[in-house]
Amino acid sequence: MMTQVYIRPIGIAASPQAEAGDAVRLAGGMVYAHRFAILLRQDGEVTLRERVSPEHMAQALGRLPDSVAAEAEAQWTCLRFAHPPLQLGERTVRLDQPQVMGILNVTPDSFSDGGAFLDNPEAGRAHAAAMLESGAALVDIGGESTRPGAAATWEGDELERVLPAVEYCAAMGAAISVDTRRPAVMEAALAKGAHIINDVSALRHDPRSMALAAAQQCPVVLMHSPGKSDDLHADADYDNVVFDVFEWLKNARNHALDAGVQRENILLDPGIGFGKTLAENLALVNALPLFHALGQPIMLGASRKRMIGALSNEADAAHRLGGSIAFAVAGMDAGVQLLRVHDVAETVQARNVWRGLRDAALTDFSDIPAD
């Protein structure tokens, strides 16, 4: 009988003084957690759920079975781990606050921009510049649509789309990630000035990708997607989507470590919208604080996705700004480090207001009773 353990933050505090210091800084960011659920799962069923504050965590961990003790200790350490900044060329991206990654799609069939930047480098360059001027920390360039039902892109076409965009973004001094699952595109984009590999297949699509990532020693984003072939949305079958995605990402991280990717170069993405129902996507967003227990920075990509339309009278992609901001704020409240978005200026403004509230809470003692 297999037993698994999870330490899930379930209580968020505006500041540590609000809980008389009995709170921890979640993943070294601007969110403080003061209540945690320790969960044991045996053969898919939750058999124990204990609510614990940081003050009593050591005693609670000491009561766990020996078979999960080391894993529980590792998760508790990871939840409090402050991630170092990403050094991307001349740019430093700090991970002690939410950062915004702007999307630049150079595809003919993107669900969000309808190919506006394909074969139009001036428009793409202007869009990238506008995102950077609005406060994007990174630009994420993609040459293949991965929406449900999209046809696979030939590698040569993807290279022709992506490389010019990488070149003009690099000329601006941008920090660049390349959204691809093909090693030839990864290698060529890195050679042209990209800094991060963002792979929706978690380096599974081509066996050469993992070796390339290890050899390049660049940051990589490993995203959860259930599909094993060209259809990344296929083969979805979850007993519990939160725990199943957590275990999947843990295995993807460990596989990358075994292949020689350095731990500080691994970021994780729960894959919102990839092979998941509306209810499953919402469950994952609500459970985002749990994923800090994996010890890696977390990226959230929920911008303009279909679930927003499903909750908003089937609003099309061009009319999903409000829902995109709502999910971005949910990610910030969960301590997510990277927000991958289409609407950079609006998201940066929301982030700045959110950050102002967090900063103010740290210095506001007016309504906190003394012990």
Results as ranks from 00 to 15, higher is better:
90 E>H: 09
87 Q>N: 14
143 G>M: 01
82 A>G: 08
114 G>V: 09
151 A>I: 13
168 Y>F: 01
147 R>D: 11
130 A>C: 12
248 W>R: 12
95 L>W: 05
129 A>E: 09
327 F>I: 00
28 G>K: 00
350 A>E: 00
19 E>A: 12
136 A>S: 03
220 V>A: 05
314 E>H: 12
107 T>A: 07
166 V>L: 14
18 A>Y: 08
209 S>D: 08
241 V>M: 02
111 F>G: 13
122 E>Q: 15
264 E>I: 11
309 G>T: 02
21 G>A: 11
253 R>V: 15
229 S>V: 12
111 F>N: 09
183 P>G: 11
76 W>H: 04
251 N>P: 11
335 G>S: 06
118 L>Y: 10
47 T>L: 10
149 G>H: 02
283 A>C: 01
274 F>L: 13
153 T>Q: 06
2 M>G: 15
277 T>S: 08
139 V>P: 00
235 D>M: 06
130 A>F: 01
327 F>T: 09
354 W>V: 07
138 L>N: 02
157 D>T: 05
67 S>R: 15
283 A>Q: 15
205 H>F: 12
309 G>V: 02
236 A>V: 02
102 G>Q: 02
17 Q>V: 12
197 I>D: 07
152 A>R: 14
367 D>K: 08
341 V>G: 05
246 F>L: 04
364 D>V: 06
7 I>W: 08
52 V>A: 00
121 P>L: 01
266 I>G: 13
178 V>H: 03
243 F>M: 12
7 I>C: 11
215 A>V: 13
299 M>W: 11
59 Q>H: 13
330 A>F: 04
208 R>G: 10
191 A>E: 11
193 G>K: 04
178 V>L: 09
357 L>C: 13
270 P>W: 11
284 L>S: 10
67 S>A: 07
96 D>A: 07
233 H>K: 03
80 R>Y: 05
350 A>N: 03
147 R>A: 14
247 E>L: 14
190 L>G: 04
167 E>L: 06
261 V>G: 05
197 I>V: 07
250 K>N: 12
144 E>Y: 04
85 P>C: 03
106 V>L: 10
165 A>M: 07
251 N>K: 15
195 H>L: 06
234 A>W: 07
181 R>P: 14
185 V>E: 06
222 L>T: 04
48 L>I: 08
319 H>W: 14
329 V>W: 02
190 L>A: 06
